[in-house]
């Protein structure tokens, strides 16, 4: 995500404020965040020679700043920091870069990443295109869901013949799943 002020640099800070019930939010690069804070557009203590350090500090004091990867320092069940087996990254490295090390990181650090992902996109589950190797699996899942719904409806409308049929078909489909 690019900084919304300069549109050039990568945004690493997210700032949100609520003034008289009106919510305002900014996604900024460190330079623009420092500048806006200096100009008093956004609140916070004055910036020192090391703007990045100051902002980090604000965030750790649980003020309004947080990096895009801020999952809240007060995470209670902070687990043993694992390392991604493929790229060797730890979550601390991910948080510092704002980017993951390899595709596998998304599995290893799923729990830590979900809050930031939800903040960026407003959601955390993919809908849309899938690679071919997932397509068949997906279709079967959707088919099972549709049949389960029809089965319920059939029972509700006392169409037991259809319900029996569906039950058999479902058993077959699920059987494939187990293999």
């Amino acid at each position: 995500m690019l900084c919304e002020k300069c549109g050039k640099k990568e945004a690493t800070f997210y700032y949100k404020e609520n003034v008289n019930g009106v919510e305002k939010s900014y996604t900024l690069c460190s330079d623009c965040a420092a500048e806006m804070q200096k100009n008093g557009v956004i609140s916070g203590t004055s910036m020192g020679a090391d703007p990045f350090g100051q902002l980090q500090k604000l965030f750790s004091e649980d003020k309004l700043f947080g990096s895009l990867f801020n999952t809240g320092l007060k995470q209670p069940e902070a687990r043993e920091t694992p390392k991604c087996p493929l790229c060797g990254s730890t979550f601390a490295v991910l948080a510092k870069n704002g980017k993951v090390g390899c595709p596998g990181c998304y599995e290893v650090f799923e729990a830590e990443l979900i809050p930031s992902i939800r903040r960026i996109h407003g959601r955390s589950t993919h809908t849309g295109k899938t690679p071919a190797r997932f397509r068949e699996q997906n279709e079967r899942k959707q088919k099972i869901a549709a049949m389960e719904k029809e089965l319920k409806d059939s029972i509700a409308s006392e169409n037991y013949e259809r319900a029996a049929e569906l039950r058999d078909q479902l058993r077959n489909l699920r059987g494939n799943d187990a293999q």
């Binding site: 595709p103 993919h126 849309g128 295109k129 899938t130």
Partner: peptide
């Protein structure tokens, strides 16, 4: 994209969709 998909294993998981270097591009 279909061409690539037919020849290579594209990084993807069912939760986050296509896996990207930056989380801002996840999903599609």
């Amino acid at each position: 994209d279909e061409l690539l998909d037919s020849r290579a294993e594209i990084a993807y998981n069912e939760k986050f969709g296509y896996l990207t270097h930056c989380p801002t591009n996840l999903g599609t």
